[in-house]
Simulated scan of single mutants.
Amino acid sequence: MMVIAGFPWWVLAIILFIIFCGYMAYRAMREEQKMENHFIEQEGQKYMARIEEARQQKDEDKEHTMASGS
């Protein structure tokens, strides 16, 4: 039986596996957060574009009303 630093090899293998799983979970969490932020940014841009369209439409309606009222 192989012993490393007083521990059987399989104990060290399990510890390394746990560390690796933690690292991969952290990496996945960070990537998902980036994707979520990107999605939020896209939705914010769509929302701002709709607000700008509504503002332009309101200004056009206002100009049209003023022009026809004179």
Results as ranks from 00 to 15, higher is better:
M1F: 06
M2A: 07
M2Y: 03
M2W: 07
V3F: 02
V3W: 02
V3L: 07
I4H: 04
A5P: 00
A5Y: 11
A5G: 14
A5S: 14
A5N: 15
A5T: 11
A5H: 11
G6K: 01
G6P: 00
W9G: 02
W10L: 09
V11R: 11
V11Q: 11
V11W: 03
V11S: 06
L12Y: 00
L12G: 00
A13Q: 12
A13E: 03
A13L: 07
A13Y: 06
I14F: 10
I14R: 08
I14S: 12
I15G: 01
I15N: 01
L16D: 05
L16I: 13
F17R: 01
F17Y: 02
F17H: 02
I18H: 03
I18C: 13
I18M: 13
I19Y: 09
F20A: 05
F20L: 11
F20D: 02
C21D: 03
C21K: 06
C21M: 11
G22A: 05
G22L: 08
G22K: 02
G22S: 14
G22N: 08
Y23G: 12
Y23K: 09
Y23I: 11
M24L: 10
M24Y: 04
A25V: 10
Y26M: 07
R27L: 15
M29D: 14
M29Q: 13
R30V: 15
R30T: 15
R30H: 13
R30G: 03
E31I: 10
E31Q: 09
E31R: 05
E31P: 00
E31G: 07
E32K: 05
E32W: 05
Q33T: 14
Q33C: 12
M35D: 13
E36I: 13
E36G: 01
N37V: 05
N37W: 12
H38S: 06
H38Y: 06
H38N: 04
F39R: 13
E41D: 12
Q42I: 11
Q42S: 14
Q42D: 13
E43P: 00
G44W: 01
Q45S: 07
Q45L: 03
K46H: 15
K46M: 15
Y47L: 08
M48W: 05
M48A: 15
A49I: 03
R50Q: 12
R50H: 06
R50D: 13
R50E: 13
R50P: 00
I51R: 10
I51C: 07
I51Y: 08
I51F: 06
E52R: 09
E52Y: 03
E52W: 02
E53D: 12
E53W: 05
E53R: 09
A54R: 04
A54P: 00
A54V: 02
A54S: 09
R55I: 12
Q56H: 12
Q56L: 13
Q57W: 02
Q57K: 09
D59C: 08
D59N: 14
E60N: 11
D61E: 15
D61H: 03
K62I: 09
K62Y: 14
E63Q: 12
E63L: 08
E63H: 08
E63D: 10
H64N: 14
M66K: 05
A67T: 08
A67W: 03
S68E: 09
S68P: 00
S68Q: 10
S70E: 03
S70G: 04
